[in-house]
Design a protein around this nucleic acid. Sequence first.
DNA 1: CGTTGGGTTGAGAGAGCTCAAGCCTAGTGG
DNA 2: CCACTAGGCTTGAGCTCTCTCAACCCAACG
Lengths: 226, 226
Amino acid sequence: MLNFADCGRCHMEKSCWPEDCELPGGIGVERQPTVRDGEFLWRQGAALRQLMLVRHGCVKLFESLADGSERVLQFALPGDLLGLEALSSGRHECHAVALGDVLLCRVCNSDDAGLTTPGLQRRLLWRASTLLRERTRVLRLADPDLSLHGFLRDLARRIGRRADSSGHAAIALRLPMSRREVGQYLGYAEETVCRSLRRLQRRGLVQVRGRELQLPSEEVSDLAAG
Amino acid sequence: MLNFADCGRCHMEKSCWPEDCELPGGIGVERQPTVRDGEFLWRQGAALRQLMLVRHGCVKLFESLADGSERVLQFALPGDLLGLEALSSGRHECHAVALGDVLLCRVCNSDDAGLTTPGLQRRLLWRASTLLRERTRVLRLADPDLSLHGFLRDLARRIGRRADSSGHAAIALRLPMSRREVGQYLGYAEETVCRSLRRLQRRGLVQVRGRELQLPSEEVSDLAAG
DNA sequence: CGTTGGGTTGAGAGAGCTCAAGCCTAGTGG
DNA sequence: CCACTAGGCTTGAGCTCTCTCAACCCAACG
C-alpha cells in the first residue's frame, strides 16, 4: 500500500519545510501506514533506515537509563523531522513510540543523506542548524513554573486550535502525553508537574481539565511572533 | 597577515574533521590572528560572518538573560566548529568570548553554506547530526556530582594530558573557566560547584588544586572508548 | 605591600523529591 | 446500560538538598 507524494503539492509543506532557503524542486515522500498508539517506530540501537516527517500525532523519543528510569528527549509533533540526530552514526540512540495514532511520511532518497535530491541536503543542514539553536537553549530552567509554561506555550503554538474561554480568545489543546512524561522531559517529578500546573492555573496562565488545556491567546502569540 | 592552509595537510585534521564520511577534497581555511583573553569573537545579535574552527584555547558561548544573569551555552574547545547554530538564521543568538588566548581557523567558502566546496556541506550536516545527538542528552541531571563528573571527564578527554599521580596513571588538565562559569553552564550555583568538587575529591574521582585537576586514567578512558 | 577577584566554607531558608493515600476518568465486560 | 477496574491524576507530610547570604582565605598583580 505505497503512497507517494510531492511535498510541493501538500498543504503541510509550510510546516514540514519551513526553511526559507531556495526550493530547487519538490521533495518526494512516501506516506506510511498509520502507527497505532503505543507502537514503536524503532528501538534504541536500531539502524537508521530513513528520515521521517511527522504528519499527524505525537512521537515520544526517549532513552532507558541504567537505573531503569526513562528520560524523554523530545516530543515530535507534526512537521518535525525524525532521524537527523542519527544521521552521522547511522544508529538510533533512543526509542521512539507513538503517543496516540501517528501518521508519517518517509523522506525519499534520505538513505544517502539526501545527495540524490537537489536541495534536500541543504534543507537538512538548515533544519539541523535551527534545531541546534533551539536545543541549546532548553537546558535547565531553575523554576518549574517557567519551564512548564514555556513547554505549554510551545505546544499550544504547534498543535493548538482557536477556542473561546468565557468570551476571551484562547488556544485549546489536548496534551498528547501524561504528567509523568512531561516530568521526564522537563526534569521534574510527576507531582511537581501537577502542582506547577495548579499554580499556573491559579495565576490565570492556563486552564486545566484533565488533558484538555486552554491558554489565553496573547500568552501564545508572543511566541508565534518570535 | 593572511595565512591560508589546507586541513588535509594539518596535524589537527582528525580532531577538526572527525566525520567519517568520504573526503572528496581538502578543506581550505584561513588562520586568524590570536584572539586575546577576554576579547569577544562576536556579540549577541551580530550577523554570522563565517564558520570558524577552534585551533587552540577555549571559547565561551553565553547569553545574557533579561534579569541580568548569564547562561553559558557551550565551552568550545580545539576541534569545535563555531557558527553552525547560526547558519539558518544568519544571526548569532549568543555572545562568544575567549577564555585565555585563542587561535582560530576561518573556514573558507562557508559564507554560502559550503556549497562551493564539494564535501563541505555534507561534513557540516554530519557534524550537526553528531551535535544534535550529544546536545539532546545533556539536559538536566538531578545530581550535581554526576553532572560535574561527566563535565570533567569530557574536558579531560578533550584537553587532558597524560600525567602521573603518585604512581598511578592520570589525566591532568587546567580548567579554562572559573567555578562560577561551570555553574552557569551546568545550572548550579558557584558554591554548589565548589562543594561538589570537594565531594568528588573525597571520593577519589578527581584531584583538585586550584584550576589544575587530575583524573584517574580509567575514569576518562571509558568515555574515550564510548 | 595593598588590592582585587576567584575560591572556599558555614548557617539558614526554601523548594523539589519521595512516600503514601485517595480521587477521578476512561475503558471493559457483564 | 451499569458496575467495575486500572491507570492517570491529585494532594499532603516530611526529608533532603541546593540556593542565598555572608564571611574569610588565597594568589596574582601592580
